[in-house]
């Protein structure tokens, strides 16, 4: 286990010598800026209209956290859905392309060293992306008074969603030799997770409420919403831990199975 940082360090350095990392960071910052401006404009529009209507009660209810920051976090986590597969697609596929999987698997590393090292590198990158997301609400603190607690717990939600996506990307990358395929597999799994609650609502499990509940529990969206409402609940944190853990265990099994094929 002590080689996890070694593997992660190499992975991160490789990520940052390629243009991919910089491309992703720039694109993410630009999109962040665009979404932020859109949400701010929409919010001012609301304030303006409500003032014209002299709706004092509604004006009172309108606040930066619920009506601006949350929407922004939601949009940014959607952007992560497209970007993270691009970041994780090379994790294992490039080892296979370079033939370096043979180096790793014949060195005294354990499979967990390799899998967790790679996940750690991807997680560090996701943390960087989350920091970019965090920059924008920070600006609001200069001009208004959003709730600090909600802003931070929402940001934690973005981070956890990102880490979940990264674990899924890690798994997809271990399955194939092709980066394109790794990207697509990640994307399909992420879409399924996104669409699961819709399936539950459509009544696929009409007769069995238990299954509908389970499907709803499986989707990241519901847990993310709880966090952006400012509710840091153990069950939501456990959800992310379980999903990340399951995908990392599956990755380990796949990497190990190369030896047994």
């Amino acid at each position: 286990m002590r080689h996890i940082p070694t593997v992660a360090g190499r992975e991160l350095r490789s990520l940052f010598v390629s243009p991919v990392a910089y491309g992703v960071l720039s694109l993410f910052s630009i999109l962040g800026g665009v979404f932020f401006i859109l949400y701010v404009a929409e919010f001012s529009e609301w304030v303006f209209r409500l003032q014209q209507m002299q709706a004092a009660q509604q004006l009172e209810d309108l606040n930066l956290s619920d009506h601006l920051v949350n929407g922004f976090y939601g949009s940014m986590s959607m952007v992560l859905l497209f970007l993270i597969p691009g970041v994780t697609m090379g994790l294992f596929t490039s080892e296979k392309a370079n033939g370096t999987d043979e180096l790793l698997l014949t060195s005294p590393l354990t499979i967990w060293d390799i899998v967790l090292g790679k996940f750690l590198a991807a997680s560090a990158f996701v943390a960087l992306l989350t920091a970019i997301v965090g920059m924008f609400p920070a600006i609001l603190f200069l001009y208004g008074d959003p709730e600090l607690g909600k802003t931070l717990s929402g940001l934690l939600g973005v981070l956890l969603v990102g880490w979940t996506y990264a674990a899924i990307g890690c798994f997809a990358s271990s399955l194939t030799r092709s980066q394109v395929l790794a990207f697509l597999i990640t994307f399909v799994i992420l879409l399924c997770i996104l669409l699961v609650p819709a399936m539950a609502d459509l009544g696929i499990a009409g007769g069995a409420p238990g299954i509908a509940e389970l499907l709803r529990w499986l989707s990241t969206g519901a847990h993310f919403d709880e966090l952006s409402k400012g509710l840091v609940d153990t069950s939501d944190l456990a959800y992310f831990a379980v999903i990340i853990g399951v995908f990392l265990c599956m990755t380990k099994a796949v990497v190990e199975s190369v030896r047994w094929r």
């Binding site: 490789s14 010598v17 370079n98 033939g99 370096t100 999987d101 180096l103």
Partner: peptide
């Protein structure tokens, strides 16, 4: 161990 193709990271 030197495998058939040297296991190198081209970007390093």
């Amino acid at each position: 161990y030197l495998p058939e193709t040297p296991p190198l990271y081209p970007e390093m």
